[in-house]
């Protein structure tokens, strides 16, 4: 066996440090609460409600991104136009803006001092302290992840497939639904997972727009503030557990289909 170079050992040790850095706190968190305590926590109506709220607001954010983001992602993947780079940078803005700033920014448009906020108020849409507000925030922070994933997906499909389809008599709509969509849906699924994962972890922007109704991260924060680490841990474990399960299911679904094709 050839002797490994020092460089090899540097890469290995850095890798081990990073693995430990990520896994140790998570393992510690997951194993801290006793089984009885976990059981106790999941019977708590507030906990169940907040986790459910987190999941379905994140899901809604992903759905909205899917409906509105897919056409935009397609245009960005297929065409070249003046100002495309600018549009792409704008899409990425929510990723780089600090979370509380996002919350404040959304409130400044949706608040009573702005005509849009006034308009919303008149038709009975409330952003501040409402589920609607939470969904708006989560969509804001999650959308870029969806659009980027799906844009990459569209880019990996040869435009020639669409051209051949057109030449064989298919309209642009038929081509999209018969060729492009079936080939891109997996990347859409990835986009939905990325978007909802980002949305479900949002805290900073949400507390500003809607402390109540409480999503899981806010509840965890409140329990930590009021009762300490020990009482926040079981909720956190449940949140992590349920999210991982959901993502695992999606992952299995996508893998299954890949084997078929």
């Amino acid at each position: 066996m050839t002797k490994k170079e020092p460089f090899f050992w540097v890469t290995v040790s850095c890798g081990i440090v990073i693995m430990a850095f990520i896994l140790l706190p998570l393992i510690e968190l997951m194993t801290a609460p006793s089984f009885a305590m976990l059981k106790e926590t999941i019977k708590d109506k507030d906990v169940v409600r907040s986790i459910w709220l987190s999941i379905y607001t994140a899901g809604l954010a992903a759905l909205i991104s899917f409906v509105f983001g897919t056409p935009l992602a397609y245009v960005l993947a297929r065409t070249d136009f003046r100002g495309k780079k600018l549009v792409e940078s704008i899409i990425d803005l929510p990723i780089v803006i600090p979370h509380p700033v996002v919350g404040i920014a959304i409130l400044s448009v949706a608040g009573k001092n702005h005509w849009i906020g006034e308009l919303f108020n008149q038709v009975g849409i409330r952003i501040m302290g409402s589920v609607t507000g939470i969904v708006v925030v989560l969509t804001f922070v999650g959308m870029p992840f969806y659009i980027n994933a799906v844009k990459n997906g569209f880019e990996s499909i040869s435009p020639r497939l669409e051209k051949v389809s057109r030449s064989l008599g298919a309209s642009m709509f038929s081509t999209f639904f018969r060729i492009t969509f079936p080939l891109a849906w997996r990347s859409m699924l990835v986009g939905i997972v990325m978007c909802s994962a980002r949305a479900i972890s949002e805290f900073g922007a949400v507390v500003i727009v809607a402390y109540h109704p409480m999503i899981a991260p806010v509840l965890i924060y409140e329990r930590f503030e009021a009762y300490g680490l020990k009482y926040s841990q079981p909720v956190a474990v449940w949140l992590v557990f349920i999210c991982l399960t959901l993502f695992l299911i999606l992952r299995i679904l996508t893998l299954h289909d890949r084997e078929k094709a």
Binding site: R160, L161, K163, S167
Partner: peptide, 16 residues
């Protein structure tokens, strides 16, 4: 293109 009655075969075949 779909109304022209022109078919095209590319070098990379572009099968679906």
């Amino acid at each position: 293109p779909e109304k022209r009655g022109v078919s095209i075969v590319y070098q990379d075949y572009s099968l679906f």
